[in-house]
Nucleic acid binder design. Structure first.
Length: 722
DNA sequence: TTGTTCCAGCTTTTT
DNA sequence: GCTGGAACAA
């Protein structure tokens, strides 16, 4: 069999990983070293050389995007459709297994998947039901507690009834939450993974079946796996020596949501005969960029160790811009992007990366006033929008009227005159009788203890749902969706909304009908489930593309986190300041600080040709002026790799001008704002404000060593430095 | 039931 | 300094 095309384009290390004999393999793949390529080629290689059916392959990723891309590339390499191959996200695959084996897993056949937003709402409702104060038991904290334990594989019933009030209360909440979910047949994201783990662990026959089926198991972004995901992989591969994982400990940036870098170490002890392959040759960035990244990351302890190199030249030095303030920073970046475009670069080749989403605003404003198209990543995705979730809630009720979560969401949307009082009554009936809200409302309208008005409005809701259920019979999926958005009054409700918002929402609802029409039933369906259930699961598991047209030539704005896996010719990492990046919440804790450093490493290694780092001498945060210091990460990069950019006179502008827009103008004072100065006693600093005239003239200087000082110019011997 | 005001809180994000 | 949610008034 001719397999040369699979390996001929690979370098030595890549080829070693791809062609290694069957055994457990850990590929430590540096940024831009061809990680996905190795994974894809390995799978193709295995299938070809061992003459396997593609159904013997299991490949797991974290995002749907990565899964889709991987499948596409494998099919292209093999030149046939590998429909039977299980390629998907941990959650997607877990969902598929649970659908197949709902009964064995102890779930109702019609279980429904809820996303984190639904989960949070449920927790809030639970707190209300238990009469607990949200201020004392913050819902997000409860959510974190529940998910945290699930990710570690712990059920409420496994946990000891000990500890302080806090511990016991949280445990109660966890237990109640589990019960509520079970009653309504709801499964959250963490539950998908935990259930599957329990299913395989406790069901020897099933486990053996899947162990025999999946001859080779592959994992992408292995450094991001959490405890339960790793345990799941362990079950499937134990004793079989067939686990192939690709990851980069230096790019582990999701520790805060449960990812365990330690899994990389565990792998090495759990699979004694494993092979480790390092991919260190980088095909993305210039040597200067790689050297900076290498120099930064060596400051972390306990790394697996890896040093990126390239055959390419040094390229441009890395530029560092010390902005006068955050406005100036945005101004500078946008000017450089303009220049890039003038010289023939594409806007889409330029990215502005920041630590936190709030930083995007200034850049957006600058880009907008400069007439430069841009695209901001992040924010609400399609299936997460309120109007979409409302429509989905109606669909959930069609599929499963006892879904309390969906019921509460839309009982009064659009307004039917069902207020909190009535809803509270429904809840108490449901609670007392241990029935669902849907059953409760049906009971209540027959009971005679309510007013005629309440009875009327409740009946109107019951009719809406019953009609939907009756009409749904025999309709195509998109027709069901169509009805759910029209006959419930959702479309009219949003049409009445003033402003463009309403219009956009109506459009989104129509888009939902479209999405349903295009929904590929076959693709997701391997278990003979009904189409509506699958569509709803799809909506929860795949929250939809980010907004905006990818194909337009736009400057890309995103957080450093979302930049992982991407590359751009021109990269700006902005706000590289102590207290912003690293974030103040991470500074105290060494392991979190290391994660911030890895985040910086991820950012640097996104750049192919040109990298700018910038920070501001003065920045408004939450309405207060702060005078941050340049980030320690900048200092960890050898200064000979960095070229400092001084704008000198051209950037000087008073603070008041900075606020009202930019018209750079010369100051008549002795010192320009932003001017670097030196003081005999205080050392070096930057002029931030100038006040008064003549003998009364004072300047505010931020000194590197001693911080902010106001100095009388007449007395202080300040010297300008270049 | 809707609109207004007040107040806390405020990384990162996929599924 | 802005936002989302909750408490309040009309």
């Amino acid at each position: 069999m001719d397999v040369t095309h699979i390996i001929e384009s690979l370098n030595d290390a890549q080829r070693q990983a791809v062609t290694a004999p069957s055994q457990s393999i850990l590929v430590l793949a540096g940024a831009g070293s061809g990680k996905t390529r190795v994974l894809v080629h390995r799978i193709a290689w295995i299938i070809k050389t061992q003459d396997l059916s593609s159904q013997s392959i299991l490949a797991v990723t974290f995002t749907n995007k990565a899964a889709t891309e991987m499948r596409g590339r494998i099919e292209k390499l093999l030149d046939y459709s590998a429909q039977a191959m299980w390629v998907g996200t941990f959650h997607g695959l877990a969902h598929r297994l649970l659908r197949r084996h709902a009964h064995e897993a102890g779930l109702p056949e019609a279980f429904q998947v809820i996303d984190s937003d639904d989960q949070l709402r449920m927790i809030k409702r639970l707190l209300k039901a238990l009469a607990l104060d949200e201020a004392r038991w913050p819902p997000r904290q409860v959510q974190g507690y529940i998910n945290g334990h699930k990710e570690e594989g712990r059920r409420a019933r496994h946990m000891p009834e000990t500890g302080d009030l806090y511990q016991r209360q949280m445990l109660t909440l966890y237990r109640e939450y589990e019960q509520t979910c079970m009653r309504s047949g709801l499964v959250d994201f963490a539950e998908l993974l935990l259930r599957v783990h329990e299913l395989l662990r406790d069901n020897e026959k099933l486990l053996q079946f899947y162990k025999q089926r999946f001859l080779h198991v592959h994992v992408d972004e292995f450094q991001d796996t959490n405890t339960i995901q790793y345990a799941w992989l362990r079950l499937l591969t134990e004793g079989k020596n067939n686990l192939f994982v690709v990851g980069d400990d230096d790019q582990s940036i999701y520790g805060w949501r449960g990812a365990k870098i330690e899994n990389i170490y565990s792998f090495q002890s759990d699979y004694p005969n494993h092979l480790v392959v390092r991919l260190e040759q980088n095909y993305r960035s210039t040597a200067n960029i790689l050297n900076a990244a290498n120099a930064l990351i060596v400051n972390n302890q306990g790394r697996m160790g890896k040093e990126l190199w390239t055959e390419d030249g040094d390229g441009e030095p890395i530029s560092l811009y010390a902005a006068f303030n955050e406005q100036d920073e945005a101004y500078f970046v946008v000017e450089r992007i303009k220049k890039w475009v003038e010289l023939g670069g594409l806007r889409s080749e330029a990215a502005i990366l920041y630590r936190s989403n709030v930083q995007s605003r200034l850049f957006e404003e600058r880009l907008m006033s400069g007439g430069i198209p841009y695209r901001v990543y992040g924010g609400l995705r399609f299936f997460e929008r309120a109007e979409i979730k409302n429509a989905l809630a109606y669909l959930h009720l069609i599929a499963h009227a006892n879904n309390d979560s969906a019921f509460e969401r839309v009982i009064n949307i659009p307004n039917r005159g069902i207020g909190p009082k009535t809803i509270e009554d429904l809840r108490s009936v449901a609670r007392d009788e241990r029935i669902s809200l849907w059953q409760a409302v049906n009971k209540l309208v027959l009971s005679g203890v309510i007013t005629a008005r309440t009875k009327r409005v409740l009946n109107s809701f019951i009719d809406v749902i019953n009609n939907l259920i009756e009409q749904a019979e025999g309709l195509a999926l998109h027709e069901k969706v169509q009805r759910a958005v029209e006959h419930t009054g959702l479309i009219d409700f949003h049409k009445k909304e003033k402003g463009e918002k309403g219009e956009a929402r109506v459009e989104n609802l129509q888009e939902l009908v479209n999405a349903a029409r295009q929904f590929d039933y076959e693709e997701d369906n391997t278990e003979g489930l009904n189409e509506l259930d699958l569509f709803l699961a799809h909506a929860a598991l795949e929250s939809g593309e980010m907004q905006g047209d990818q194909y337009d030539d736009c400057v890309q704005l995103m957080t450093l986190h979302s930049a992982k896996g991407l590359e751009f010719k021109l990269v700006f990492i902005v706000g590289v300041e102590e207290g912003l990046f690293p974030s103040p919440r991470s500074i105290e804790d060494p392991s979190r600080l290391e994660e911030e450093r890895r985040l910086c490493y991820v950012g640097i290694t996104r750049a192919m040709q040109i990298l700018y780092l910038s920070y501001a001498e003065s920045r408004r945060i939450y309405g207060r002026d702060t005078y941050p210091k340049c980030s320690r990460f900048i200092k960890e990069i050898p200064s000979d790799k960095i070229q400092e950019i001084r704008m000198g006179a051209t950037i000087s502008r008073p603070v008041s001008m900075a606020k009202s827009g930019f018209s750079p103008r010369q100051q008549k004072t002795a010192f320009q704002l932003g001017q670097r100065v030196s003081h005999v006693k205080f050392g070096e600093g930057v002029v931030l404000q100038v006040e008064g005239e003549g003998a009364q003239e004072r300047v505010q200087v931020n000194f590197t060593a001693v911080g902010m000082k106001w100095l009388m110019l007449a007395y202080a011997k300040l010297e300008a430095i270049a």
